[in-house]
């Protein structure tokens, strides 16, 4: 074991967990040790958003987050969204609008869309584009993603 490794404790999708973590390990690799693959490294530069997770309720790029720094914090991944067995409104809207093709970037977009709608329940198209500008989709499902976010906002609005 690396001499710079350290035992950390954190909450992962609502459950307390612990792990022995080397200083260089990033959060995406830490999550892989828990068999969570929804956050995934692609560009490795925080630009594509494929590795989006929440740390203490704040969206971060997992590939730019040192795993040791989540000690004592709460980490939430895309796998938490359908824990009830039901898809979230955002997830269902992504399916209904066909807002993905290969699916590799999708968890990141879904997570960011959730964050956007938390902060702004009725975003206009410019606000959606501004908020999602840090996520890339090489299949370019952007028009459908914009529609899905609007549709999710409609579904989440209290009747």
């Amino acid at each position: 074991m690396d001499s710079t490794s350290r035992q950390i404790r954190f909450t992962l999708n609502g459950r307390p967990v612990s792990a022995r973590v080397e200083s260089h390990l990033d959060l995406v690799d830490l999550l892989r040790r828990f068999d969570l693959f929804g956050a995934r490294e692609s560009c490795g530069q925080g630009l594509c958003g494929c590795c989006t997770v929440l740390v203490d309720g704040v969206a971060v790029s997992g590939c730019l987050t040192l795993a040791q720094l989540v000690d004592g914090k709460s980490v939430t991944t895309v796998e938490s969204l359908d824990e009830s067995g039901e898809l979230s409104h955002v997830q269902q809207a992504f399916i209904d609008e066909g807002a993905f093709q290969c699916g590799f970037c999708t968890p990141g977009f879904v997570m960011m869309a959730h964050e956007l709608l938390k902060q702004n329940p009725d975003p206009n198209e410019t606000e959606i584009r501004d908020y999602l500008a840090g996520n890339l989709c090489r299949c370019a499902a952007y028009p459908e993603i914009i529609r899905a976010v609007r549709s999710a906002a409609d579904r989440m609005r209290p009747a």
Binding site: L36, F37, G38, A39, E79, L87, Q91, I95, F100, G103
Partner: peptide
Amino acid sequence: ARQKVTGR
């Protein structure tokens, strides 16, 4: 679709 939006 379901596997893709859930990250699974």
